[in-house]
């Protein structure tokens, strides 16, 4: 019986986390950035490494390191909030006119839960993303990759109580094919 309960708890939790990601994607696609910021823990680390082409067997050198190398992003909530503030000035020309965005989130998998499925307080989840960005007339970018998130049960109501505590964004590109990264992933 206990095992069966765990499987049901696990199923519910995965759906809950997926729902959280979908809601988050909706906020981003509708440029509701203030509400999106509310889904981020105060101590969030938002990290998007660059990816090198490396020899087989040297996988540890593929990604630039958080906290010591240059990355595409490696920052906390304060800087993310400043990015939102910049977009909201209405004169951030790289987002003026605004991008048309669709965040597709899929392959949601739970990688770990603390302390247990029946009472999850912290969840590690991975997913795949596809972001379609279209701007001005014909400017089009497609970014595909993987996300590794740690979600924490918070007190707020914003995301059913979940907050993003860590986010690692692994983009499947070497040379960035987009002229900028003015949107969140």
């Amino acid at each position: 019986m206990a095992e069966r309960d765990t499987r049901i708890d696990r199923l519910f939790l995965r759906q809950e986390i997926a729902d959280f990601f979908y809601r988050e994607a909706e906020l981003l696609d509708h440029h509701r950035y203030r509400e999106w910021l509310d889904l981020l823990a105060e101590d969030i680390r938002y990290w998007m490494p660059m990816r090198r082409n490396v020899k087989f067997g040297e996988a540890e050198r593929e990604f630039t390191r958080a906290g010591s190398d240059i990355n595409w992003f490696d920052e906390g909530k304060e800087t993310l909030a400043r990015r939102v503030k910049q977009i909201e000035t209405g004169i951030h020309w790289a987002e003026e006119p605004r991008s048309r965005l669709s965040h597709l989130v899929t392959n949601v998998q739970l990688q770990g839960v603390e302390p247990c499925f029946a009472d999850p307080q912290e969840v590690s989840a991975t997913c795949r993303f596809l972001i379609y960005r279209n701007r001005v007339e014909t400017e089009t970018d497609i970014l595909v990759g993987r996300r590794e998130d740690v979600l924490r049960r918070g007190s707020g109501e914003a995301g059913d109580g979940w907050l993003v505590a860590r986010r690692k964004i692994i983009l499947d590109q070497n040379v960035l094919l987009s002229k900028n990264l003015t949107f969140f992933i």
Binding site: G67, I70, W72, D74, Q86, W93, A94, K179, N180
Partner: peptide, 24 residues
């Protein structure tokens, strides 16, 4: 080094809040 690195990343390059507008 870390303090400067944080500043460089938010200033420069495609995710840099300054340079994004140059490239536009």
């Amino acid at each position: 080094k870390n303090f400067l690195r944080d500043y460089y990343i938010r200033y420069s390059g495609p995710a840099g809040m300054t340079e994004q507008d140059d490239m536009e």
